[in-house]
């Protein structure tokens, strides 16, 4: 085996290179998980971790400073999340910090954010290994927005129902058809309007809750970071909320109109008489329903804007569009 020496040399180079790549990969991965270097464990208890997993990143002021080490369910409302934090960062994080779970982008994995807290008495002390820090949940807001949007959808459906009825009146389907359906129609009307009123009240309740959150945002600047990345967004949201309120009020007005209208029908001697006596009645009804539709649509748009703002912080590209919308709203 004369040529075995250069062969062994090449083999040796190959083997060492392969092992080196492997070791480098292990090192880099381990480095990300803070396995090497000094680190300490802190804990925070959440109500809901929203799909957080072991190994997810922990961020402090937007910098990755550690990873989630373990997630334990303590009981049905508290879940303990222990995090491994780089020791250099530990000195900078205060005892009063708050932990919050959020999503890293639209389809991103979950992350834990560490935020400066509001409890001043603890603000001067740095975090110690083994400490438990308080948590705040952002998930409630997301839930609320979902409910709002469902309510709005319901309102839209009801409007569509009402439109159908007016259309059939408009098309006249013959006076006989109206006469026959008279009683039934009145009932339908009543149900639809009742539903619409409920929706509207839900909407206003929701709007009130959003307002409460917004108040918190403006009063407690520290917590604002949870929901918003800066005050511009806060102002935007305030604008949107006021629009929402306007929309809700509009819907409410329209509903009152409708109620009046249906009351008229019932008081009159049936629809036929009513329509005969009031030639403008049908047109009036039509206009009312159009108003409802318009209000609902605006409500919808505002909802969407709000969701973008809260779920996706830093969604400022839409800023211009939102402003334009606000202006049309003012007109």
């Amino acid at each position: 085996m004369k040529n075995s020496n250069p062969q062994n040399l090449k083999l040796g180079i190959f083997v060492i290179l392969g092992i080196a790549i492997f070791v480098a990969a292990v090192y880099f991965i381990g480095n990300r998980q803070n396995l090497f270097g000094d680190s300490s464990v802190i804990t925070s208890v959440f109500k809901d971790v929203n799909g957080l997993q072991r190994g997810n990143n922990v961020r402090f002021a937007g910098v990755n400073v550690g990873t989630v080490q373990n997630i334990r369910i303590l009981n049905d409302t508290s879940i303990a999340v222990s995090m491994r934090i780089d020791d250099r960062t530990m000195k900078l994080v205060r005892k009063n910090s708050l932990a919050t779970i959020s999503s890293d982008g639209l389809v991103g994995s979950m992350i834990v954010n560490l935020l400066p807290g509001e409890n001043d008495s603890l603000a001067s002390k740095p975090l110690q290994p083994g400490d438990t820090i308080a948590s705040i949940s952002k998930i409630a807001t997301a839930d609320m927005l979902t409910t709002l949007s469902t309510t709005n959808e319901n309102a839209a459906l009801l409007t569509a129902d009402l439109l159908k009825i007016t259309n059939s009146i408009n098309e006249g389907k013959g006076t006989i058809g109206v006469l026959i359906k008279d009683e039934e129609m009145a009932n339908n009307f009543k149900q639809s309007i009742e539903g619409l009123r409920q929706s509207t009240s839900t909407i206003s309740r929701m709007v009130n809750r959003v307002n409460v959150i917004l108040d918190e945002v403006s009063y407690k600047e520290s917590v604002a970071g949870v929901l918003l990345s800066d005050t511009i967004a806060a102002r935007q949201i305030e604008g949107i909320i006021s629009n929402l309120e306007i929309s809700a009020l509009q819907i409410s007005d329209v509903t009152t109109n409708l109620q009046q209208f249906s009351y008229d029908i019932r008081q009159g001697e049936g629809a036929l008489d009513y329509i005969l006596n009031n030639p403008g009645a049908v047109e009036q009804l039509d206009a009312t329903l159009k108003n409802i539709e318009e209000a609902t649509r605006k409500f919808d748009e505002n909802m969407e804007a709000l969701q973008h703002n809260i779920l996706l912080r830093g969604y400022f590209k839409k800023q211009a569009r939102i402003k334009a919308r606000e202006e049309t709203q003012m007109d």
């Binding site: 085996m1 075995s4 062969q7 062994n8 090449k10 083999l11 190959f14 083997v15």
Partner: peptide, 16 residues
């Protein structure tokens, strides 16, 4: 051992 090294070379380096 020598044959083992030879095979390592044949399989490792020659497949590289």
């Amino acid at each position: 051992f020598r044959e083992f090294l030879r095979q390592c070379y044949q399989m490792g380096n020659k497949s590289l």
